[in-house]
């Protein structure tokens, strides 16, 4: 397939769409940004795309709780479309606010008998929004399409509500893709390595198919070497760690 068409979903308060578009374009995708109203009014159809992205931001101000209002909008008005999109082999990526939306919309969280999701993203233990870089360790057995071949990454987080919470049973059943870790890969290193107090140091999860992936850290903010906080003192590398997330997605669609 020549063109990998990616839809960048925008809602009021989305603010990482430009750099996420850049990352996908660098990876060879063709990206179109769509205001949520364009999807609701059927001016743009999900079925015309292979990848759907919910980028970072503060949709609707993160009022009530982060991503909640967009999550409801997605669940109530686009839920079936997204379900069909995934069943048809589409890829879905949620970054930061996108993670919060996918979980709270029930797309990336199990719910018993159609009840409310039993997984959530709560306020950071520190009580603060924090912008800092974190080491990530990938789960080698994860089916996630986006992280194939990735073992570790160093990426920035910037959020106030990134703590994965849920009953132990729910957490045990999750497809964890990425863990917060320290430089050596120890995933029990605690704050600030785990920047929000996330249960089991969970930083990113996917669905059973591996095609729906969401994470709190921002891979789009480290696609070029000069975005690394220490690029002026470390040996130069061709790409930033986050770049492979986008390339994996694009390559997978091309080869599908």
């Amino acid at each position: 397939m020549a063109n990998v068409k990616t839809l960048m979903l925008k809602a009021p308060g989305t603010n990482c769409d430009v750099e996420t578009t850049f990352a996908f374009e660098q990876a060879g995708a063709q990206v179109e940004s769509a205001h949520i109203n364009e999807l609701l009014r059927r001016q743009k159809l999900l079925s015309n795309y292979q990848i759907m992205v919910i980028p970072g931001g503060f949709t609707y101000g993160d009022d009530i709780s982060a991503g909640k209002i967009l999550a409801n909008e997605v669940r109530l008005k686009l839920g079936e479309d997204i379900q069909r999109f995934v069943e048809d082999g589409g890829l879905v990526l949620g970054i930061c606010n996108g993670f919060q939306v996918l979980v709270k919309a029930g797309i990336l969280s199990k719910s018993a008998d159609g009840g409310p999701p039993q997984l959530s993203l709560a306020g950071n233990d520190s009580g603060k929004f924090e912008s800092r870089w974190v080491y990530l360790s990938a789960n080698p057995t994860s089916p996630c399409i986006f992280t194939q071949g990735i073992t570790t990454m160093y990426l920035p987080v910037a959020h106030g509500e990134g703590k994965v919470v849920g009953e132990p049973k729910i957490l045990d059943e999750l497809n964890v893709v990425l863990y917060y870790a320290d430089e050596t890969g120890n995933i029990q290193a605690g704050y600030p390595y785990n920047p929000n107090g996330s249960a089991n140091s969970i930083a990113g999860i996917c669905d059973d198919s591996g095609r729906v992936f969401a994470l709190m850290p921002h891979p789009e903010r480290f696609v070029r070497w000069t975005q690394h906080p220490r690029w002026t003192r470390e040996p130069r590398r061709e790409y930033g760690d986050g770049f492979r997330v986008f390339r994996n997605a694009v390559e997978w669609v091309k080869n599908a």
């Binding site: 750099e19 912008s131 910037a158 696609v223």
Partner: peptide, 23 residues
């Protein structure tokens, strides 16, 4: 203060407000 501001959004930062071996 600095860490409570998002200084990475837009993906544009080249020299950040905090630098060095431990950022």
């Amino acid at each position: 203060v600095i860490r409570q501001y998002d200084h990475e959004v837009q993906g544009s930062s080249v020299l950040k407000p905090l630098v060095g071996r431990n950022n």
